[in-house]
Design a protein around this nucleic acid. Structure first.
Lengths: 336, 336
DNA sequence: ATGAAAGCGCTAACAC
DNA sequence: GTGTTAGCGCTTTCAT
């Protein structure tokens, strides 16, 4: 096995240059010669060495995908969108999970440099996003889910404040008055959703109960459990969770507490994960255009590659409010 | 930017060899010199060129992960396990989705050859698995979910026949007698689960109703919908679905048909996806050790790399029967 | 339309 | 413990 381009050249009775030209479909080659080369390649089972190609050409045709965890349905879907677009453009995708761990994050960013990647799709932790300097890298970066401050890199994000506010508006309209919110403490996203939440409540002169927590189901379960166990008068009548993992924990806490879950306290949140539709009653959520986010990220990347001087852009996508049974109109007003 | 090892060597006042030695931590270097080199690297912001390194050393430190779709929770989890193990060993992961499409599959296998990957974790379609020739490739391949026939490659699989049979045994024990099964038509897995299903029913002299369908929720919804709409006497009293997607479709069909889903027909299947626990009643499933499968696949790969002459191994992992409300004991026996 | 030859950036003999 | 040098397999001028 391990053949070189020279072997193909000899077999086809041409120079290596000619073989290279048919391989990269670049440069003039007579059709009969091309056929001869092609069949030599086929016959020998030759495969060009990607590393050699990249070294010489300077083009790696590789994009890096850095997310906190592919198991998060949001990133699962984004990954798929990115891989789809990459496949169509003949790019390969290197998958990196950071677990919101600064060390892993730094290590993978360094890896991207060593790979001389064509570009990176990146979901940074809050801290990393703050520190991020696009000009420190030789490749373009498109951030997803979380934008870097003041256009230091292209980004595709949800209109978090608006989406959060719409969730609150919906709850208020349905008669809920003591609305509590749970927000992720590691991301810019959590902060933005918190802001939209607070603003909307303020507009209605409603009290706010909000907490920033570790973005996992367990911490949500703990906090919501505590809320539900509190004095009935102080207990929230609706709970908002700022991402799919927190929403899951909140749902579990509510289920654990009564045989008729969601009967007395409403629940709503972010991320239209499969289970939110399947449980009964279904859970009202903001659905993010997840596949679109990944697809648009790849488009921004492609455009940036085509014109590096272009000023940075942040694409803001709207969320969709999906109303389900968990926010049924309140039968009897108890509070303000 | 774009510095070469030579620049570092000059800055540190040493030869390129010495720099190479500290980079790869391989070969003797005096400690004071090492420090000098390290700080030169740091100061200049030098990053070794991965392509050049690979070309010269012949070691790509890259593994390919070829699955049908990362969005399938099974592969999502496997991907994560593979990436975890890769990270610990300093390997990069190239992510490939085939969509059970033979063309994409062939293209990605070819990519793996061009990349001169260290190894591949691969979930082939049924046809590709049949055709697969390990000796056609210069890198080891570990199959997951679906094994190639007669040990042509290492593999990690579930004990499908046993798991399927246990599902049937459970249903029979709970009083169900007219058990219908839905099986994926694209995979070896579907066939094996079908066999276990049929064998178990035969053992109990029970009639079997089984169908092979496209492995997506829509086709399951159609088929189960038709079953439920049939004559009450012919209608199954329990339905088994051979993977998470079919189970989802089956669940939807049952929900669509009555306001008290699952009250008159039992449901059970494969894959302990999040929703199966959260719906009420929960759905009885065979839980696959998904993370373990990915982790073990990487271990087999590592061991094969260490000893290529080792005979091929198939690791068979047991599924776990998770009993939930969807298979409550039958109150009144209607059938045989 | 085709070929000869230089060289991408690195590692690994080999020499000292 | 350190340096010199050849060459991994390819693409790309530059000639012809």
């Amino acid at each position: 096995m391990n053949l070189r381009i020279k072997d193909v050249a000899e077999a086809a009775g041409v120079s290596v240059t000619t073989v290279s030209r048919v391989l990269s479909n670049n440069g003039p080659v007579r059709d009969t010669v091309r056929q001869r080369v092609l069949s030599a390649i086929e016959q020998l089972g030759y495969r060009p060495n990607a590393a050699a190609r990249r070294l010489r050409s300077g083009d790696t045709a590789t994009i890096g995908l850095i997310v906190s965890d592919v198991r998060n349905p949001f990133f699962t879907e984004v990954s798929r969108a990115v891989e789809d677009a990459a496949y169509q453009q003949g790019l390969r995708v290197i998958l990196c999970n950071t677990d919101e761990n600064p060390e892993k994050e730094a290590m993978y960013l360094r890896l991207m440099e060593e790979e001389r990647v064509t570009g990176v799709i990146y979901s940074p932790t809050h801290d990393a996003a703050q520190r991020f300097k696009a000009q420190a890298y030789d490749f373009p970066v498109v951030m997803i889910d979380r934008a870097a401050p003041a256009g230091s890199a292209d980004a595709v994000v949800l209109d978090n404040r608006d989406a959060s506010a719409r969730l609150v508006e919906h709850l208020v309209e349905r008669g809920y008055r003591r609305i509590a919110g749970l927000f992720g403490n590691a991301s810019t996203t959590g902060r933005e959703r918190h802001e939209g939440f607070m603003d909307a409540l303020r507009r209605h002169d409603l009290p706010a109960q909000a907490e920033f927590v570790e973005p996992n189901p367990e911490s949500a379960l703990l906090h919501v459990g505590a809320w539900l166990a509190g004095e009935p008068a102080a207990r929230p009548d609706a709970i908002v969770a700022s991402n799919g993992l927190l929403l899951l924990g909140a749902y579990r806490a509510m289920r654990a507490r009564s045989t008729t879950p969601l009967a007395d306290v409403a629940l709503a949140g972010f991320d239209n994960d499969a289970w939110t539709e399947l449980v009964s009653p279904g859970v009202t959520v903001i659905a993010q255009p997840v596949y679109e986010i990944g697809k648009n990220a790849m488009q921004l990347l492609t455009q940036r590659l085509a014109d590096p001087s272009m000023s940075t852009r942040t694409l803001v996508l709207p969320g969709e409010l999906v109303i389900r049974g968990s926010t049924e109109r309140r039968a009897v007003l108890a509070g303000g």
